[in-house]
Computed example of a mutant assay.
Amino acid sequence: MSSFSVHVDSEFESIYNLVPKPEQKVVKPPMYKSRHNPLAPIPFSTNKGLGPNIGKLKNNADPIKFLRKSTPSKRNPLKPIENNFNYPAPKPLKAKVPSKDERPVVGLFTEKNFVTANAIEAILAVPRVPDASAPDYLKKEDFGKVPKYLGEVKQEIEQENEMIDAFVRKQMEAYEDTPELCDAMPEEERIVLIEKLKTKWDAVNKKYQVLCMHTLYEGHQKARKEAFEEEMNGIEADLEKLTSKGPLMISRG
């Protein structure tokens, strides 16, 4: 017994499409109706009662005769402006620049002797009368006397000096009570030390002069040169201390 099956493919026409299908009625939902009255005026509006007239000309006004800039209206008429501003007086102008055709006056000479004229004017001048209202400082009570504040300043300076002397005296007393910590270097020992330092400086200087004759190409040669310079500077500082005037003190132990 054989069985027969029909393969239905969506890409090809199906035999089931030949069977008429019943029409389906579309059921529409009820129409929406607002519960508010559309003809009622808008609440909290500034144009109550003017809604039907918006966009319309009132009182048959001419659309060409509209208000333009700076045109007074019935509600806001233009008020006359009081102009109380006074312009300041014009400043005097500077003299004009002379033109190219104007020539200065040249070649004028005078025979007046200004030295003689000044001398005659000084001789014939009336002496000035001193002003009686000006104070005469020569008749003051404290004229020629030392001011009081200078005496106070001098007294303060003396008090400060006394305090400093007392402090130094106290420090010296405390230093005298302590045992001596230094001894004076003998003169013979100082002379020997100076000769040895000079001999050492000559030896270092000889090495330094030989090194300076060569061109410094490497870093170690430059380092040796700086070491010689530092050593000679130290020897010179020691020689300066040893050759200074006065006794040379050496600390104990």
Rank of each mutant, 00 (worst) to 15 (best):
Lys100Tyr: 08
Asp183Arg: 14
Lys65Thr: 05
Gly151Tyr: 07
Asn53Thr: 09
Glu189Pro: 13
Leu181Asp: 15
Lys145Cys: 01
Ser244Gln: 14
Lys69Met: 06
Glu121Gln: 05
Arg190Lys: 05
Asn113Leu: 11
Lys25Gly: 01
Ala184Phe: 15
Ile120Gln: 14
Met172His: 11
His214Phe: 09
Leu242Val: 07
Pro88Glu: 03
Met31Ile: 02
Lys56Cys: 03
Asp165Arg: 10
Glu195Pro: 06
Ile64Thr: 10
Lys58Cys: 08
Lys200Pro: 11
Leu18Pro: 02
Thr243Trp: 02
Val153Ala: 11
Glu111Leu: 13
Gly144Trp: 01
Lys154Ser: 13
Pro43Trp: 03
Glu231Phe: 07
Asn17His: 07
Leu181Gly: 14
Glu102Arg: 09
Ile81Glu: 01
Asn47Asp: 08
Lys170Ala: 11
Ser244Arg: 13
Asn113Ser: 06
Glu189Ser: 15
Lys33Met: 03
Leu216Pro: 13
Phe44Ser: 06
Lys206Met: 14
Lys196Arg: 13
Glu23Asn: 07
Gln209Phe: 08
Ser99Ile: 04
Lys112Cys: 13
Leu57Glu: 05
Pro77Cys: 00
Glu176Arg: 11
Val210Cys: 11
Thr215Lys: 04
Thr116Lys: 14
Asn118Thr: 10
Asp62Phe: 00
Phe66Thr: 03
Ile123Phe: 08
Leu108Tyr: 10
Ala117Asp: 11
Asn83Gly: 00
Ala227Tyr: 03
Gln171Gly: 14
Pro22Gly: 04
Lys33Glu: 04
Pro41Cys: 06
Ser3Phe: 02
Val210Leu: 15
His214Pro: 07
Met31Asn: 02
Lys206Ser: 09
Lys148Gln: 09
Leu181Asn: 12
Glu180Thr: 11
Val19Arg: 03
Ala223Thr: 12
Glu23Met: 06
Tyr87Cys: 02
Val6Leu: 08
Leu150His: 02
Val106Ile: 12
Ser45Lys: 07
Leu216Tyr: 02
Asn113Asp: 15
Ala132Lys: 10
Glu226Lys: 08
Ser14Pro: 06
Gly246Phe: 09
Asn86His: 02
Glu176Ser: 13
Tyr32Ala: 04
Val8Gln: 02
Cys212Ser: 13
Ala40Lys: 08
Val210Gly: 14
Glu173Val: 12
Tyr149Phe: 06
His220Cys: 09
Val97Ser: 06
Ser73Met: 02
Glu176Asp: 14
Pro104Cys: 01
Lys74Ile: 04
Val126Arg: 03
Pro88Phe: 01
Asn205Met: 15
Asn86Ala: 05
Pro104Gln: 00
His36Ala: 09
Asp101Glu: 09
Arg35Trp: 08
Leu78Glu: 02
Glu158Ile: 05
Phe109Cys: 07
Val27Cys: 04
Thr243Glu: 15
Val26Thr: 04
Asn76Tyr: 02
Pro63Cys: 00
Gln24Pro: 10
Ile157Ala: 03
Val106Asp: 12
Asn76Ile: 03
Val6Trp: 01
Pro20Lys: 02
Asn17Lys: 06
Glu158Asp: 10
Asn113Gly: 10
Met185Val: 15
Asn233Val: 12
Ser10Leu: 09
Lys65Met: 07
Lys112Asp: 14
Cys182Arg: 13
Ile54His: 05
Phe12Ala: 04
Phe85Met: 01
Lys112Tyr: 12
Pro41Ala: 08
Asn83Lys: 01
Pro130Ser: 05
Lys245Asp: 15
Met232Gln: 14
Pro30Val: 00
Phe228Arg: 07
Lys148Asp: 12
Lys96His: 01
Pro80Phe: 00
Glu160Thr: 07
Ala40Leu: 11
Tyr87Lys: 04
